[in-house]
């Protein structure tokens, strides 16, 4: 099912999508997925499909807006952009993530010093 992977990624995937939209402006789903893959330097194996439930989730919360438009190849595609609450949310989410990361770092640091 790949469910496990999606679950692990869920929190971070949302933030990645928001951050991508912040830096790139309105973008269709494929563009977002490609951008995330590029930024993560292909270290992250992302099922591109998982981006869509994430986008829907963000849209339901009102952080992301969507609109049909034309792609660079003149194909009809749905474009996503940040809403005002979404912009605010990025700051909050970033802070959350940094706190979590710092906590994890503290957990990991003493064990490495103890082994010395």
């Amino acid at each position: 099912m790949g469910e496990n992977k999606a679950d692990v990624l869920q929190g971070t995937l949302d933030l990645m999508v928001l951050k991508t939209l912040e830096s790139m402006g309105p973008l269709h789903g494929y563009g977002i997925a490609r951008r995330i893959e590029q930024v993560s330097g292909d270290a992250l194996s992302l099922n591109q499909g998982t981006i869509y439930p994430a986008l829907l989730r963000l849209e339901q919360r009102g952080w992301v807006k969507s609109e049909w438009g034309l792609s660079e190849t003149n194909r009809r595609a749905k474009f996503y952009s940040l809403s005002r609450t979404g912009r605010k949310q990025i700051a909050r989410e970033t802070e959350n993530w940094e706190r979590t990361a710092a906590t994890m770092a503290r957990f990991l640091a003493p064990s490495s010093s103890a082994s010395n």
């Binding site: 099912m1 790949g2 099922n47 591109q48 499909g49 998982t50 439930p53 829907l56 339901q60």
Partner: peptide
């Protein structure tokens, strides 16, 4: 690269 299309559709619907 996309993963399962049907699966995505199902997950999406559950979410929707």
């Amino acid at each position: 690269a996309f993963g399962g299309v049907t699966q995505t559709r199902e997950t999406y619907r559950m979410q929707r």
